[in-house]
Design a protein around this nucleic acid. Sequence first.
DNA 1: TATTTTTGTGTTAGCGCTATCAAAAGGAGT
DNA 2: ACTCCTTTTGATAGCGCTAACACAAAAATA
Lengths: 347, 347
Amino acid sequence: MSEATEKRVRSRRLSGGGVKMVDVARLAGTSTQTVSRVLSRPELVADDTRKLVEQAIRELNYIPNSAARLLASSVSHIVAVIIPSLSATVYAQEVHHIVRVLEEHSFSVVIGHSDYSELREERLVQSFLERRPDGFILTGTQHTDLTRQLLRNSGVPVVETFDGDNAAMDMSVGFSNLEAGRKVAELFLSRGLTRIAYVGGRSDQDFRSNARFEGLQSRLAEAGLAPVARIELTLPMPAGDGVRGLDQVLAIDPLTQAIFFSADTLAISALLECNRRGMRVPEQLAICGFGNYDFADAIVPALTTVAVPFEQIGVLAANAILARLDGSVQGPSQTVVPLQLLRRGSA
Amino acid sequence: MSEATEKRVRSRRLSGGGVKMVDVARLAGTSTQTVSRVLSRPELVADDTRKLVEQAIRELNYIPNSAARLLASSVSHIVAVIIPSLSATVYAQEVHHIVRVLEEHSFSVVIGHSDYSELREERLVQSFLERRPDGFILTGTQHTDLTRQLLRNSGVPVVETFDGDNAAMDMSVGFSNLEAGRKVAELFLSRGLTRIAYVGGRSDQDFRSNARFEGLQSRLAEAGLAPVARIELTLPMPAGDGVRGLDQVLAIDPLTQAIFFSADTLAISALLECNRRGMRVPEQLAICGFGNYDFADAIVPALTTVAVPFEQIGVLAANAILARLDGSVQGPSQTVVPLQLLRRGSA
DNA sequence: TATTTTTGTGTTAGCGCTATCAAAAGGAGT
DNA sequence: ACTCCTTTTGATAGCGCTAACACAAAAATA
């Protein structure tokens, strides 16, 4: 921001409302301390005084300054949330519920996008720490050393989400991507399918997709099989990438019998493309998605997929922060939410 | 938060890092003012001094306290965004781009959900004002009187989004819902369809859907027609509501020839249901959606819909705030982004 | 050389609030 | 009446930073 800007901003702000606690105190005929108490611990103030103060607050349209409060009390009532991107529905869903729960407890949520980059995440953590948040909610367990160090030093409660396979820094709320992969392998095997492919995000970007692939691979290995192809798409993956993934798989092995897509959006667009091409699903090609997306059961055939309780993850993550803050829970914790394989028409 | 909580939070915070600007100044052998300058206007500091200070900052892992900065300078670098809900893709998209643009200019975004309620919006505005944001981005132009008054008093730049039909408080970035409705009516009329229904949100919740309906209705009226049905669904509307809307329309008039759905999610689930029931689209029933959702052109038949540049709205809204803050733009402004009717298979 | 201007840095006084302690007022017990 | 508590309120001193000015040193000008 330019020098001129700062000036302009300040003068605007000063000219605006500008009612302070002293003004309220004066009008109510009390000290600022009493006003402060009415706001934060009204039970300590006599009823008559409290009403007087509340009246003055209303009359003056007084709005407390949270910066001054934070400075004096070191409580910000802010929770910082960093996700890869809000344009992926799963994260938007998660954040929705985080915001919902935290709003009820009068915490504000600040949001940042890591864009699937640890380095961007690090920068965000650094910048968010300036606001002295009371909690951090991150995605995944992959972070730079500096990120870890900064968070540890700050002493802020941290929840890592979406990864139930790896050790967390502090608290974690996730699901087992490994298990998801194994479940899908299990399903394909039970149908006697052997030529199985995987389509997911680039392995250097999408660590949780890697775990799903590993789960798939390990279960196949136990049956003496190996995936016929693994396609890596650059993040973020628009729905249309599903068709590209499908084509790449078929280019590698035209006789592929089953594909596990790391996201329902990909699976759905691939499935619809199969319909258009007259490729029969699941007879000719079985398709399994991940996430139980909105339209997964509306299309024909309905999409077989792994249901993940993303909303629940958001709620639990928010609650984990709250529980730590009010002291009802002390140490680290790891919560793993259950997955459900939804067997429908496509596999 | 309980009394015990506050104590715990404070003691945690005090024990944490706790490096302040004086510590940096001491180590660098300068005054705090010089450190402050290195952070905010490094060009004013001699190269040697600057390096010394930067070194000290790194060595101590110093992280500035934005609350103290705000208190002293009245610039928060926060923009508050209030949307109905993050679980609706359109708003998630918008917010994604708001966050993206503002992050680049080192602004933080705090998010709140109005849940389609003016009263909740009012409460959020009140609570966000405590953080002294440098800007507000709201959804729609429908607000309580107190909301307007608070915002006006605060002097903060405000952008209202998604509504290009009504007058804005300050700045606005939206599209004409009215025009959208008229465009769709035009399309149906050009196909010779006369029995036309509308499915959207409840009229006391979804004001922008109301405008779309009015557009539809007014254009039909010009042709001497009237909608055969208007279905109002309670928000938020999950995709499955599309089928309910479809059923309600057919219950009122089984001979309905065309339906305009106020959101693609509804239209898509209705269209897929028609396929399942063997109802031919568009011959038997034409369907038009709104929003050009992800899978709109992947289904069969492809969904005819109104494309709205939601991303662009996010970008423009963020830029409007930034432009106002750096003084390059002064007064109120209204930006109306263009809509595009995408004629595809379903209508 | 004397004088002005520019550049770089330090000093001081808050920003608006809360923690902490002090103290006054009222009530209960002896 | 007296002490001892409880309840309620106020005075004071920061929280960590920056704006505004003051001032010294260096550079430019006369």
